[in-house]
């Protein structure tokens, strides 16, 4: 069970398309896929799957004309599930960019900010901005009401870091940077509180 790659589809708004959520950084590139080893590659060749596009934490599948999810969806899913177990079998197409672990981290951090945690911070009049990721460490700026707020450090290290680590287990740490510039380092919760 531990070896199975978590996978579920979400709609994109177009009926021929599904965006399959996969763990961030699982595939080492983003962009259109040229070919895949195994059943998924076959589906791409025979036109069942017209386009296969890799995003930082998702794979978008577009069905070819004459194909529908009701009839072909289960086959596409099984093929995708099998292919994800073997990231090395994926061949990037033209125009693909490699995805480093830091880039995946950056993308995942931005997703956390867009999500529930960001909403929470914004609802309290604060703002959370991801500045960058380097060597497994994510830099974040907290501003607005976060400035001087006692719980900012807790929010950052307990909630933000935790949610990010669940997406990217290789995360080393989160560093808060004052909104004005990137000066003081406050990696430890204690310092974060002093700074906040």
């Amino acid at each position: 069970m531990t070896a199975v790659v978590p996978l579920h589809p979400e709609p994109t708004g177009r009926i021929s398309e599904l965006r399959w959520r996969v763990p961030a950084g699982l595939l080492p590139f983003t962009g259109p896929v040229a070919g895949v080893r195994g059943a998924l590659g076959q589906l791409l060749l025979d036109g069942t799957v017209e386009t296969l596009l890799v995003e930082p934490a998702a794979v978008v599948t577009v069905l070819g004309p004459g194909h529908g999810w009701r009839g072909d969806g289960a086959r596409v899913r099984s093929a995708l599930q099998a292919a994800l177990a073997e990231p090395a079998g994926w061949r990037p197409g033209p125009g693909c960019t490699p995805l480093t672990s830091d880039q995946a981290l950056l993308w995942a951090a931005e997703e956390v900010v867009r999500g529930r945690l960001g909403d929470f911070v914004r609802s309290h009049g604060g703002s959370l901005t991801v500045l960058g990721a380097d060597g497994g460490v994510v830099e974040v700026a907290m501003a607005g009401a976060c400035d001087g707020c006692r719980t900012a450090g807790f929010t950052l290290h307990s909630r933000f870091e935790q949610e990010l680590r669940r997406r990217c287990p290789w995360l080393d740490g989160v560093r808060a940077v004052p909104a004005a510039g990137r000066a003081q380092d406050s990696d430890s919760p204690r310092e974060a509180r002093a700074w906040a």
Binding site: V4, V5, P6, H8, I15, R21, P23, G73, A74, R77
Partner: peptide, 21 residues
Amino acid sequence: LLAPPTEGVEQSAWVESVLAA
């Protein structure tokens, strides 16, 4: 568009992925 898998490892993968999301 596509009903989730009802058994086996694909079901486990779906459940874990939904919970992670």
